[in-house]
């Protein structure tokens, strides 16, 4: 089963995703697919906070910043947090902007997620603001939306977090 959770910042996505992943894993493996490539102290602090929040949950952390499609899933459930970071890593590598990243990430995620026994995928809804962006940021914004929409085609459940509540667009969240 593939669960997709998106929504604005600080609406309870990650915590809900942890509960869902643990539930889906049952007695099988429980993996946290860490995607954020730390760029500065703020990132390191965020990673440390997320690690603390996961303590005692039984997650095995798998760090994977790029090329998710090459990863072979073990039985159990993977929590992937987040598509946003994954695309950012591939689209803005140190060697420069890569406009082909969304297509590649989309294909890689499709391969990995559909091969996994269970997966919970977290992303961020960033398409509803009134800012006018430079072409790189706009390409990223579009690429993220297209990647999210592709996941939603094959995901079993699609939900949007809103202040700790979940609006379900597809399927039903496990109780």
């Amino acid at each position: 089963m593939i669960l997709f959770i998106s929504g604005g910042a600080k609406n309870g996505k990650s915590m809900k995703a942890q509960y869902l992943a643990r539930y889906l894993a049952g007695n099988g493996g429980l993996y946290y697919l860490a995607t954020m490539h730390p760029g500065d102290d703020e990132d390191l602090a965020r990673i440390a906070r997320h690690r603390r929040e996961r303590e005692g949950w039984g997650f095995t952390t798998v760090e994977r910043f790029r090329d998710i499609g090459a990863l072979r899933p073990e039985p159990g459930c993977y929590l992937l947090d987040s598509v946003t970071a994954l695309l950012s890593n591939e689209m803005f590598p140190p060697e420069g902007f890569d406009p082909g990243a969304p297509r590649r990430v989309m294909a890689g995620l499709r391969r990995f997620l559909t091969a996994a026994e269970h997966a919970v995928v977290v992303s961020d809804a960033i398409g509803s603001d009134a800012a006018v962006y430079d072409s790189y940021t706009e390409a990223y914004r579009r690429g993220l939306a297209e990647t999210e929409r592709d996941i939603c085609r094959y995901a079993d459940v699609v939900a949007e977090a809103c202040a700790g509540n979940f609006i379900v667009y597809k399927g039903a969240l496990p109780k």
Partner: peptide, 22 residues
């Protein structure tokens, strides 16, 4: 119509007025 209501309040006065008008 695109929903442009979320995100940080734009610094640009025109974008701010646009967001509200929309």
């Amino acid at each position: 119509c695109e929903d442009i209501s979320c995100g940080v309040v734009p610094v640009d006065p025109e974008l701010r007025a646009w967001r509200e008008a929309t």
